[in-house]
Amino acid sequence: MHKFLIHYKGDHVGVAVQDIAANEKVQGVFMDDNTTIDVRAKAAIPLGHKIAIANVEEEAKVIEYKVPIGFAPNGLKVGDYVHTHNLKTLRW
């Protein structure tokens, strides 16, 4: 059973459709082709929040919906909880 959804291949994050526990191995589904990916969560991730499914280098843009949604000042590692503490807007 999947616990998160990824909108498109190439996105860096998925969205939790159920709460995810820290250190839980969870499956995600790519909505564009129904393939799956397994990720171990590094922290608890609440319903509706993001999990990193790809490593992102420091200061690099983070992709969701095939577009940049912000940047990661300190980078991201697969399984990271992605939220305002490690994702910054590109707008200001």
Score class of each variant (00 low, 15 high):
12 H>F: 07
33 D>K: 13
17 V>S: 07
12 H>C: 07
71 F>E: 10
3 K>P: 12
75 G>M: 02
67 V>G: 02
60 A>Q: 05
47 L>M: 13
49 H>R: 09
70 G>L: 00
32 D>Y: 15
58 E>G: 04
59 E>D: 04
74 N>I: 03
87 L>M: 12
71 F>K: 07
34 N>V: 14
18 Q>W: 12
59 E>N: 08
80 D>G: 01
46 P>L: 06
24 E>K: 04
53 I>W: 02
44 A>F: 06
66 K>A: 14
23 N>S: 15
35 T>E: 09
57 E>Q: 11
46 P>H: 07
27 Q>F: 10
20 I>T: 07
20 I>H: 09
89 T>K: 14
60 A>S: 13
1 M>W: 04
73 P>Q: 13
44 A>K: 10
35 T>F: 09
4 F>V: 03
78 V>Y: 00
75 G>R: 04
16 A>N: 02
44 A>C: 05
68 P>N: 04
78 V>A: 03
56 V>W: 02
87 L>Q: 01
9 K>Y: 10
64 E>W: 10
3 K>R: 10
37 I>T: 10
32 D>E: 10
86 N>P: 00
80 D>M: 06
53 I>T: 05
18 Q>C: 04
83 H>I: 01
38 D>V: 09
31 M>G: 12
3 K>G: 04
82 V>S: 15
1 M>S: 13
64 E>P: 04
64 E>K: 14
75 G>L: 03
14 G>Q: 06
8 Y>I: 02
15 V>R: 03
79 G>V: 00
49 H>G: 05
49 H>C: 03
59 E>M: 12
1 M>C: 07
40 R>V: 12
61 K>Q: 10
27 Q>T: 14
50 K>F: 01
15 V>D: 00
54 A>I: 07
37 I>W: 06
62 V>N: 01
39 V>H: 02
90 L>I: 09
26 V>C: 13
91 R>Q: 13
69 I>E: 01
55 N>P: 01
66 K>H: 08
27 Q>D: 12
24 E>D: 14
12 H>M: 04
65 Y>L: 14
25 K>G: 15
